[in-house]
Simulated assay, not measured.
Amino acid sequence: MIGPKIYETVADMRQAVDAARAKGKRVALVPTMGALHEGHLSLVRAAREHAGHIIVSIFVNPTQFAPTEDFDAYPRDSDADLKLLAGLGVEGVFMPPAKEVYPQGFATAVSVGGPAEGLESTTRPHFFGGVATVVTKLLLAALPDVAIFGEKDYQQLCVIRRFVRDLHIPVTILGGPTVREEDGLAMSSRNRYLGADDRRTASLIPQVLGEAVERITAGEEAATVLAQGMARLTQGGFTVDYLELRDAETLAPVDPKGTNAARLLVAAKLGQTRLIDNMSVARPTTGWR
């Protein structure tokens, strides 16, 4: 099996993109931090529907981790990643060293607001600045026709769509549906941290989300449903950062008189492992309560 070409420099990746375009191919970029699983692979398959040349980036971005977070421990398995991508016929993999992305003297950052405010930013104020900077660099390095990100990181997807519009980056941003395990847990590279007992407990997150979606859609008061959901998670052993209902597009608090769909988002720690998830919520026929 012939594997994808590996690029370690922006210059080499740009040369490959130019060659693909010279052959009349559209280019798609799938940014990842590696430790690939079926969720990532579903994004690659979705990208293939929009482009004839696929580049997957694998880079564990240090600027989105706080000093107390798991940058050093974040799972890395490039050999397994490359084997999976070869099986999908990916043309290229961008695997830059840190000094290529952040060379000596690097002094620029992308500052984001709007959908970046609240939720993740409350407990991880460094996070979206790091994400926005590295994603901007990746998009400008390859200038793909499309780039695809998973909906599991829903706030991140909204932030990326916002700054791509604001900065007039000529890339179409697509979202890929969350892929779940048999018990409903959203697939995540960090699931590898969970021991057997915690892994079983983790399935409480999608259970609480699913039940809350049903109750809110049926017209129950959101505040009551969310308070009860947080209590269930806490009793189950989680430390809950947030469980909130937000406007699906702007991530602002839901307007009781609004007609937009909403998104229910959660972040909670189980032991040392922090898990996030979200689900779509259709507007109740009786309106938001």
Rank of each mutant, 00 (worst) to 15 (best):
D72Q: 14
I58F: 01
D145V: 10
A20E: 12
A107D: 15
F59R: 05
I54S: 00
F238L: 09
D12M: 12
I55W: 11
A116M: 00
L226D: 02
T122E: 01
A202G: 12
A196I: 13
T273N: 10
T201G: 04
L270G: 06
T217R: 15
N260W: 06
E211Y: 01
E8V: 03
L265F: 04
R190A: 05
H168F: 14
A248T: 11
L139R: 06
Q156N: 14
K152R: 12
L143V: 15
Y102V: 10
R180D: 06
S57P: 02
G89R: 01
E117C: 04
S121E: 13
E120P: 02
P62G: 02
R263D: 00
P67T: 08
H50A: 08
K152E: 03
T122A: 11
I55A: 11
V146A: 00
D79Y: 03
V135G: 10
A51S: 03
T172M: 02
D70M: 05
G113D: 13
P96S: 06
T239Q: 15
A196G: 03
T250Q: 09
V110I: 15
P67L: 02
A132C: 13
S111C: 08
V266H: 05
M230L: 11
Y74F: 08
A132M: 06
R274A: 13
P284W: 09
A261F: 13
V30T: 10
I169Q: 05
G271H: 02
R162T: 15
T172N: 09
T122L: 08
L36D: 02
P256W: 00
I173L: 06
N191L: 04
E120R: 10
A19V: 13
L243S: 02
M187F: 03
Q228C: 10
N260F: 07
I169F: 04
D241C: 11
V134L: 07
L43Y: 08
G219S: 09
T136Q: 07
Q155E: 10
D198A: 14
R124N: 11
G210Y: 09
D197K: 14
L270D: 07
S189N: 13
Y193H: 03
E120A: 07
L243C: 06
A98E: 12
V225E: 06
L194R: 08
P75T: 00
F106A: 15
A80T: 09
M187K: 02
M13V: 14
A22M: 07
T250D: 04
A222M: 13
G258Y: 10
T32R: 05
Y154K: 01
I148A: 06
V159W: 01
S189Q: 04
F127C: 07
T136L: 08
G175H: 04
T133H: 09
E49P: 01
T68S: 14
R124S: 14
K23L: 15
R274S: 14
D153S: 08
G287Q: 03
A47W: 08
V17N: 11
V44R: 03
V56K: 03
S203D: 04
D18Q: 15
G130N: 00
D12P: 07
A47F: 03
A47L: 04
R165W: 01
S121K: 07
T123V: 15
G113E: 12
P253H: 12
N278D: 03
L251C: 11
T178W: 11
V208R: 06
P170W: 12
L204N: 04
P144F: 05
L194I: 13
T178V: 15
R200A: 15
E69C: 04
